[in-house]
Design a protein around this nucleic acid. Structure first.
Length: 211
DNA sequence: AAAAGAGACAACCGCGAGTGT
DNA sequence: GACACTCGCGGTTGTCTCTTT
């Protein structure tokens, strides 16, 4: 049936050398991205086209940011993950200079654990245990159900396309912490609510950009 | 100082979607 | 419609580095 993406023999695997990186960079500078299948041979690389593409997209592209994630980037990843699930490329698309692989790795090595430590199930973003109201976490504020209800309601039609990302997000994550409610709204909590609202608005803005 | 374990991240693999023939 | 090809995505694995014992 289908041929493999590349012949398995005479193909380098594993870590890329500086020379290989340079060959790939030089070739793409000269000819542009694309045609990954034929690129390795044309560039004089003993690599699979897939491997070249991955190397370029994840590490060699000039517009990559690299380095540690900022706090606001972390927040955004968590929020988007709550809405979109493991759609890393979509999430990475909202983080300039970040790649899906980078976001995925960061999620698996840092953020997952962070949520678990906060008592939140990273798979469905539900609280595993009751946390005190004052629990520090921008996250616990970020996906409260009232916000999700607002998204599902008023603005759903506006984001019908990409999709449908929001629609899918809410439909695709049926366990999305929908019964987590904030009670006893005191004046202090009202201020908190307003803060939440503005954070939510920012998040929604981001989601609307998917259109 | 050495070994073991844990964490971080680069890279690979398999699959599905989109497109051309 | 069936098939082949390419591309991109997400899950998983391999390996290197750091920390702990």
């Amino acid at each position: 049936m289908r041929k493999p993406c590349c012949e398995k023999q005479d193909i380098n695997k594993g870590a890329w050398s500086k020379q290989e990186d340079q060959k790939l960079i030089d070739y793409i500078r000269k000819h542009g991205e694309g045609s990954w299948r034929t690129l390795p041979q044309a560039a004089g690389l003993l690599r699979c086209g897939k491997s070249c593409r991955l190397r370029w997209i994840n590490y060699l592209r000039p517009d990559l940011k690299r380095g540690n994630f900022a706090e606001d980037e972390e927040d955004l990843i968590i929020k988007l993950h709550a809405l979109l699930g493991n759609r890393w490329s979509l999430i990475a698309g909202r983080l300039p200079g970040r790649t899906d692989n980078e976001v995925k790795n960061y999620w698996n090595s840092h953020l997952r654990r962070k949520l678990i430590n906060m008592g939140i199930d990273p798979n469905n973003h539900r609280l595993n245990r009751v946390l005190p109201c004052s629990q520090d976490s921008s996250y616990s504020r970020s996906v409260i159900p009232s916000e999700l209800e607002k998204v599902k309601g008023a603005d759903c039609e506006q984001v019908s396309d990409v999709g449908s990302c929001l629609e899918n997000a809410t439909r695709g994550l049926p366990d999305l912490n929908l019964d987590l409610t904030i009670t006893n709204i005191s004046p202090i909590n009202i201020v908190e609510e307003e803060k939440k609202q503005s954070e939510f608005d920012a998040c929604r803005e981001t989601l609307l950009l998917f259109r």
